[in-house]
Design a binder for these strands. Structure first.
Lengths: 230, 230
DNA sequence: ACAGAACAAGTCCTCAGACAACCTGACAGG
DNA sequence: CCTGTCAGGTTGTCTGAGGACTTGTTCTGT
């Protein structure tokens, strides 16, 4: 009778949620249609009504269902938009890094044109912090490196761009730490890449878009090449 | 007594959800702490226990709470990672378009280096489709235009990049349709921009990264200038 | 015959109570 | 100190009830 059977290893709500989600993703309940009522679902799933309600609410929060009092529950989407953190986690590091490079090269050009006095202070501070982090551990150093790049992107003064970089940063962190350790980049050169980063910052400070773009490209491309080799 | 008072304009669960979310985001319940029990919350909020449960489940789905049977409900995050569709919807069209330009200029360069024979066929088809859409409505034309740009990005063969463009496309669509109508771009020139798009495609086909980048930049910058003027 | 009001069925929304499953900390005994 | 037991509290689930709302139908007046 009950479609879920006598097995109860995981919470019932979760089972019910998955069951309903399958009906949607597999097309049994196309977008726009009304799904059976609470009482009916409770009977067919072999669970209580409150359990069904919580499952429906979960899928409503995920954007698959929408319940309208008095009318019923309707399917409004058949798949959840996977969020970027998980998408980036699944993607290849080189692909992520390549996109990061695309973004940042152009961001550096914009930053050179738009940087304010506050940006200059922040850039100098970030550069100094990166240099200082040369004395610390690899994770600390990578964090300081990312912070510097974040300062460059911030100087472009485009909130969408800033958000986008913020999305990529955590995905890059671990890959960069691994890279530094694998190649032992900092063994004889604790603040590895200091000269290129200095050039980048100086180009942005000088307002030279072309140089800034080239500096960013050169710096990122060398790292990308190492990532590809690893 | 009841913190929610006698007002009942919106569903109680929603009110309870917002109330709990505020407690979290405003720091009254720091990450890691246990929140009061369902029965206690029901009493303080002046609602039933099932209402509290659905509110908690909503926040759990959003990743703010985690409930463990027998132990309690715990705060595991103090802010939800806003998804890109809503973020882009809230952002200024010009900012979104600018980032799109950054991405696509570099994508065009990559595409020129990596395009396969299949890409060439798809590019030609998309270009022809855009030309054909000149006879249709504005929405149809914009869709064909976006499809062509999507084909260019796809030729770069970076899945992260393709996904990223897919994220931006819907946010751009309406803005572009409005732009076309506002400026009446197609009144005397139904397939507006055909020459520049043709140049872009030919550069990608020829494998000329520099020309492709310049063509994309020129095309997108002119549109961006119009958006800024609007 | 048509337009609008009144009705009825179905649905979600909320509550209250009960019991089961489970976790945690205290406590006694080794 | 370590360990097993136990009691209290918490979440998980079910059920029954009534309220609120939507929708389609029926009825009424013109």
């Amino acid at each position: 009778m009950s479609s879920l059977g006598p097995l109860r290893p995981s919470p019932l709500v979760e089972q019910a949620t998955n069951h309903l989600r399958e009906q949607i993703t597999e097309g049994h309940w196309p977008v726009g249609t009304r799904i059976p009522g609470e009482t009916t679902l409770a009977r067919t799933l072999g669970v209580g009504r409150s359990t069904v309600r919580e499952a429906v609410r979960t899928l409503a929060t995920l954007g698959l269902l929408q319940s309208r009092q008095g009318a019923g529950v309707f399917v409004i989407a058949d798949r959840v938009t996977e969020d970027w953190p998980t998408r980036l986690r699944r993607a290849a590091v080189t692909d992520v890094y390549e996109v990061r490079m695309l973004i940042e090269v152009q961001a550096a050009r914009l930053a050179a044109r738009r940087r304010t006095d506050e940006d200059l202070i922040a850039l100098d501070a970030a550069l100094a912090a990166r240099r200082a982090a040369g004395a610390g551990g690899d994770a600390e150093f990578v964090d300081a490196d990312i912070a510097l790049h974040r300062a460059v992107v911030a100087a472009a003064h485009n909130p969408v761009l800033t958000d986008l970089f913020g999305e990529f940063a955590p995905a890059l962190r671990q890959g960069l730490i691994d890279l530094v350790e694998l190649f032992g980049l900092r063994r004889e050169d604790p603040d590895h890449g200091d000269a290129t980063h200095d050039a980048l910052v100086r180009a942005v400070v000088a307002g030279d878009a072309e140089s800034a773009g080239r500096a960013a490209q050169a710096e990122l491309e060398s790292t990308l090449a190492r990532l590809r080799a690893a």
